[in-house]
Design a binder for these strands. Structure first.
Lengths: 226, 226, 226, 226
DNA sequence: GATGAATGAGGATTCATTCAT
DNA sequence: AATGAATGAATCCTCATTCAT
C-alpha cells in the first residue's frame, strides 16, 4: 500500500453521496475550502472555527462556501471524512494483515507515524471531535473499531508472549496506544511553551517513532527476543 | 496524603489571591458558579461554554456572575486552578517521594486514578485547554513539569531494570503515561456510543486501574520480579 | 465679594430642598462624592460617567452613593448646582454693578478667569450639559440670562462708544464672549495634543486673561482712550 | 471655490482608503448610515449614540451596519472625516489665499457660515469630539492647524492696523474666533429653551453672519476705514 | 451608613445563513 | 460560481438600581 495518495474509502461514508452529487464540483475551490477548513477545525475545533475565517484563508467571501457545502456541519463532516478515512484504511489493512509478528508491528508503527506526519491536523481533529462527543465520528469509527478490537484480541491470544494481557485488557491496550500516538501531536504547543522544543520537527518525530517501536516491543515482547 | 480533601496548594497560584479578596465572599454562590463552570468548560471548552449556560445551571442571571468573577476568562482560570492544583500537588508529592520502587509506583497509579474519579471533569478540561494552546495552563504546569521530568529521569537512571529507556526517551515516556491516563477519560462518550459500555462506571474504572498497574510494571519491570 | 468661598445661592435651586433634607447629611462623604462626580461628569459627560467610576474615586462601593443621592440624575444636578451657582452669583453681581466702565469690565474679566481657574471642571460641565440639550441647566440659567441680557443692552445703550453694536447684536456679543471664555478651557486636551502646550498652566492662563482684557477693550473701547 | 459640492480632500485622510475599498459599495446604504450616524453622534456624542439607534434611523438591523463599517469607532471616524474634511479644505484655501484684506476676510466669514449652515451637525460633532479628548480629531486637525496659525501670524504681522495683537496672542485670537463661530451653533437648543428663538433659523443665521462681519472688522480694523 | 448580591435593560459585536444579483 | 447586503440569534459585558444584611 502506498501512502502517498490517500486511497478512496473502501466503505460507504456518511454524507459523501449527496455531497458528491450536489455540492462538490470538479473545481479546485472545494478542495481549497477543505484544506482551509481542515486547518481551522484542527486548530480551534468546530465551535471555534468560523466560516468567515475559512473563507478568508481561501480568498473568498463566506457565502461562497455555500456553493460547495450545504452548511458548516456538512463542511466539517467532509473534512473529517477526508482526514480520517485514510487512517481507517491503513488500520483496517493492518488489522487484516496476516501476522502480528515483530516486522508487521514495526511497519504499522512506521506507517502510522508517516501518515500523521503528512496529515499533522488529524490528531487535533480527532481530539477536538472526541471532546465534542464524537457523534460525527462514531459512524465512521464503529465500522472499524469492532473488527480492530477482535483482530487485536485474536493476535494476542495467538501470541504466547502476549499472554500477560488478559482479553478484557485488550481494548484498553488499543486505547492506550491510540492515546499515546495521537496525544503526542496535540501537546506540541504546550510543550514548546514549557520546554522550548518543537515536537513536530523532524528530529523529534524520528525520536518519537523510535520510542514507539520500543514501546511496542516492550508491551509485546517477541518470544524470540526474550 | 489523603485524597479525600484537596490540600491547599503548597505553591502560589496565578490569580488565587485577588480572587479570594475581591470576588469570593463567604457565600456559596461563587462555589456553585465554579462547579457549574467546571462542568461546562469540561464539556464544551472555553469557547463552547457560554456564561448564560453557566448562570442557568447556577440558577442565576448571567450578569450576576460578574459579581464573583471579573470576566469569563477569570472564571475559566479559577476553574482551571481549582481543578488542576490538586493534581499538581499530588504529582509533586510523588515526584518528591523517595523511592521509585514498585510499591511507590503502584500507590501513585492508585491515587491518580482515585483523584480523577473524584474529579471526572479534569481530563476533559486539560485536553480542551491543551488543544486551545494551553497558554493558561503553561504557568501552572511549567512550575511542575520541569522537576517532574528531572525526577523521572533520576528514577530511571537509578533503576537498572529501566535502563531500556534512554534519557532522551524519558520525557516521551512521561508524556505517554499522561496521555494514557488522561485520554481514557475523554473517550468515554465515544466509547459508549461505539461499544455501549460506560468507561466511567465503577467496574470499568477498576479495570483500568488494574490495567495501568500492569502497564507500569511492564514498562518498568521490578528487578526482583524478573 | 470674595471668591475664595462659594457663597450660597441667593435663589432657590431646582432640587436642593429634598437633597438637603433627605440625602445630604453633614458627613464628608457627600462632599467627596460631589467632587469625584464633578471631575467625572466634566471629563466624560453624563452618559459617559458611570457611578461605579465615581464610587471608585471616592473609595466606596457604588450602592453607597444612593445613601447620599437619590439617583445618578440627582447627583448630576447637585454637581451642576454646586458648580454653576457661584458663577451665576458672580455674573449677577456684575450685572447689577453700577457702571460698565473700563475698571468694572476689567474686574469682571479677572474675577471670571479666577473663578474658572479655581473650578477648572466648570467649563467642560457647561459644554457637556449644553450639548446634551441643557434642559437641566435651563431653569438655573434662565433665571439669570434674561436680566443679564437686559443689563448688557442697557449698558451698551448708555455707552456712546459702544454704539457700534446694535441692540439685536447684544445677545450675540454676550454669547460670543461666553464661548470665548468657556471654550478656551475645553480645548486644552486637543491643544496639548496638537501644539504641545498646556493651556491650563499658570502662564497660559495669565496670557489668556491679558488677551481677554484686550479683547474686551477692543470690542468696547473706552471713550477716554480714543 | 464653490461650496455647493464638497471637494475631494487635497490631503490624505486617515482611513478613507480602506473604507472606499472594503466597505463602501455603490449602494446608498453606506451613505444613509453616515447620515444617520452624523446626526446621532452630533446629538449625543460617541458614547451616547447607540448603533441600534443609528440602524433604526436607517431602517435596518444593527448587525447590518457591520457590512459597511468595521466598528462603531470606524463609523465615527468616517463621519468625522466626511464632516470635517470640507471645512479643513475651506480653511486651508483661506489660509493660502493671498491677502488678508477686508474683502478676503468677509468672504471667509460668509463661506464658513454657509458651510456650517449646510452642515449643521458639524459644530456639535466638533465640540463633542473636543470634549472627548479629540484624539480622533488630532491627526486631521494638526495637519491644518499649524499652517493656519502661521498664516494668521503672518497676516497680522503684515497688517499695521492689527499690531494691537502681539504674536503670542494670535493663537488665542484664532481660538476665540473658532469658539465664537462654532459655539453659536451648539447653544441653539439651550437658547430656544431660555429665549424662545431658533438660532438655526434663516433670519438668525443672517444676523449672526452680519455680527461676525462686524466682529472681524472690529478686531482687525481696516486702515483705510479708520 | 455601607455593601454583597442580584438583575433588567441595553450595548457592541460575531456568526451562520439566506437571497437577489 | 461569487458576493454584497441583510438578519435572527447569541455572546460577553456594563450599568443603574434595588434589597437584605
Amino acid at each position: 500500500m502506498t501512502l502517498d495518495e490517500d486511497p478512496p474509502l473502501p466503505f460507504p461514508t456518511t454524507a459523501s453521496a449527496p455531497l458528491q452529487r450536489l455540492r462538490r464540483p470538479a473545481g479546485r475551490t472545494a478542495e481549497a475550502i477543505l484544506d482551509a477548513a481542515e486547518a481551522l477545525f484542527a486548530e480551534r475545533g468546530y465551535e471555534g472555527a468560523s466560516l468567515r475565517d475559512v473563507a478568508d484563508r481561501v480568498g473568498v467571501r463566506a457565502p461562497s462556501l455555500y456553493n460547495h457545502f450545504e452548511s458548516k456541519e456538512a463542511l466539517y463532516v467532509a473534512v473529517l471524512e477526508r482526514s480520517v478515512g485514510p487512517v481507517l484504511v491503513l488500520l483496517a489493512a493492518a488489522a487484516q494483515g496476516e501476522g502480528g509478528g515483530r516486522p508487521d508491528r514495526d511497519r504499522l508503527v512506521t506507517e502510522v507515524m508517516a501518515l500523521l506526519a503528512r496529515r499533522p491536523h488529524l490528531p487535533r481533529l480527532l481530539l477536538h471531535e472526541t471532546l465534542a462527543g464524537g457523534q460525527r465520528l462514531t459512524p465512521m469509527v464503529e465500522r472499524f473499531i469492532g473488527p480492530a478490537f477482535e483482530r487485536a484480541e485474536a493476535l494476542i491470544e495467538a501470541d504466547p508472549a502476549a499472554r500477560r494481557w488478559t482479553p478484557e485488557q485488550v481494548p484498553l491496550l488499543v486505547l492506550a496506544m491510540y492515546h499515546v500516538v495521537v496525544g503526542y501531536f496535540t501537546v506540541a504547543d504546550l510543550y514548546r511553551g514549557a520546554r522550548g522544543e518543537d515536537l513536530l520537527a523532524e528530529p523529534a518525530l524520528a525520536r518519537q517513532t523510535r520510542f514507539l517501536h520500543q514501546l511496542v516491543s516492550t508491551l509485546f515482547p517477541d518470544p524470540t527476543e526474550r
